[in-house]
Design a protein around this nucleic acid. Sequence first.
DNA 1: CCTACCGATCGGTAGG
DNA 2: CCTACCGATCGGTAGG
Lengths: 193, 193
Amino acid sequence: MAKRGKINQRQRILEEAAKLFKSKGFAGTSMRDLGGEVGMEAASIYNHVKSKDEILESICFYISDTYISQLAEVEQTATPYREKIETLIRQHIRLMLEEGAAVSVANNDWKYLTGDKLTAFKDARKRYEHGFAALIEQGIAAGELQPVNVSVALFTILSAVRWVELWYRPGRGVSADELEQNILTMLLNGLAK
Amino acid sequence: MAKRGKINQRQRILEEAAKLFKSKGFAGTSMRDLGGEVGMEAASIYNHVKSKDEILESICFYISDTYISQLAEVEQTATPYREKIETLIRQHIRLMLEEGAAVSVANNDWKYLTGDKLTAFKDARKRYEHGFAALIEQGIAAGELQPVNVSVALFTILSAVRWVELWYRPGRGVSADELEQNILTMLLNGLAK
DNA sequence: CCTACCGATCGGTAGG
DNA sequence: CCTACCGATCGGTAGG
């Protein structure tokens, strides 16, 4: 009977939107562009979605929710801090590989959110950063990590993991496992001998 | 006599544009926004600048030219590879601190370049990356650096240095010198003990 | 450097 | 899901 389903169509719209926002930016993408990609007129998109803003919100909060719940899980496991941080880095890389476009939008186009949504997103990001920073701090206090400045360590990790979205292309010499392993080596052991 | 000078006005326009593009994106910034910031009507901006595209080009190539010439200089000095890489990292951080808005535009809005300019910018970036990668490779071959995957090392460094633009605010606990020193420690020695 | 515009395109709605 | 359209805004030009 092949009932398409409004929810599935909505999902498709969100996915195509994420790809377009990633390559052209939120402001540079028109509803007509999106319609072209999805295969309907721009006006028809509004049967599945309230507004262009709502599309952005769905993408951004899907990603921030994922990060937040991954952090909560790691916080609850009883493992050394070094291992907790390793797990978070791995999860970052994997989410990037699986949901590259959406992660890219959450990283770059969140600034086009407005009102409450903008505030809520910034809050979520701040909570995540504080939670991650606390783990690093405790790891240093426990003697498991170098006594480096916590903010610098945190943002170096978050950034190192962000480039994956911009530069990594699978099947070009580096496999996903090698990628993970090499990033972990860089961040935990450093480049110098 | 306080002659304003077309060149100075043009410079001011470029600087305000860089700030606006950084915060709202190239596509999200209108010539009317820019006029408001510079203190003239949108139409008047065209007395100092050919088009909105030309503004973007000036900003992007100013940054890429700077990177390219810094690399050329480092390549010519007779120092250990580890030191060359340290110098490049320091220069990246300093340029970010001095020209944050322009660097941000070159990093994020270059994708709105078109035609020849887009090609030329991508080429410049590729040349820079290849040159930097070659130094890492030679450093590994010389036994000065860990045998990590060269691409991963390169992009981890470039990314670690990019976050400065997004997250670092001077006068909030971390001085510029501490910032440099801590990033270098993270990248060269790693977080683990 | 401004006023007065231009054609094009934008996000979104009405009505079917 | 489409056609037809709205008011607003866009980059840019003409003419002074």
